[in-house]
């Protein structure tokens, strides 16, 4: 039987807040969730940008087979992710603590805040990178609004999942 009077059950309606695990357990879970968020955001972002690049080529009338699509996606997971993962890592290092701070002030908006932290955070990073590097647009998929929004969505999803896991009630 599940104990129904625990502290964790007093926060019904907000799955992100309320537990009493040990500090070290929280730290470990947050750390692992952070690493997971970086990895998920990086992988999703890589897969997304590959599809946009391929769509641009197929839009020129060139057939791209499923095998070629998969091979290109895998290539980018190997070659694009080191630099994009670094960008995501730096972004989330700033964005997630900021989201956590805001979530304390507005606990009802925790999920939205963490999603926005990833999505807006990576957008800010794109802007900074494009402003600082010599090339006008570092990541080809972000040349279009749709591409940029989809990349934001990918990272936002990862940070939303982060919040679901890292801040879930303890057991």
């Amino acid at each position: 039987m599940v104990e129904g009077t625990g502290l964790e059950n007093r926060q019904r309606g907000n799955p992100f807040v309320g537990s009493n695990p040990t500090l070290s357990a929280i730290s470990k879970r947050v750390l692992l969730s952070f690493v997971g968020a970086v990895l998920v955001a990086t992988a999703l972002g890589s897969i997304v940008q590959t599809q946009f690049n391929l769509a641009a080529i197929s839009g020129l009338g060139v057939d791209i087979s499923l095998g070629t699509r998969l091979a290109t996606t895998l290539h980018d997971l190997g070659m694009f992710t080191p630099v994009f993962g670094t960008i995501v890592f730096a972004t989330l290092l700033v964005a997630l603590p900021l989201a956590a701070l805001l979530a304390r002030l507005m606990p009802a908006l925790t999920g939205i805040l963490f999603f926005a932290a990833g999505a807006v955070g990576i957008w800010v990073s794109f802007q900074l990178i494009d402003a600082l590097l010599p090339m006008p647009t570092f990541i080809g998929a972000t040349r279009s609004t749709v591409g940029t929004l989809t990349m934001m969505l990918a990272v936002g999803f990862a940070t939303w999942v982060f919040a679901r896991i890292a801040l879930r009630p303890g057991r």
Binding site: N53, I57, L60, I64, R69, T72, D76, V83, F138, I139
Partner: peptide, 21 residues
């Protein structure tokens, strides 16, 4: 360009899968 190229994008991503067609 950009359908066939021996280069990658600066990010490391493939601009295209094709080097020749």
């Amino acid at each position: 360009w950009p359908v066939v190229t021996f280069g990658l994008d600066y990010s490391g991503a493939r601009i295209t899968p094709f080097r020749s067609l």
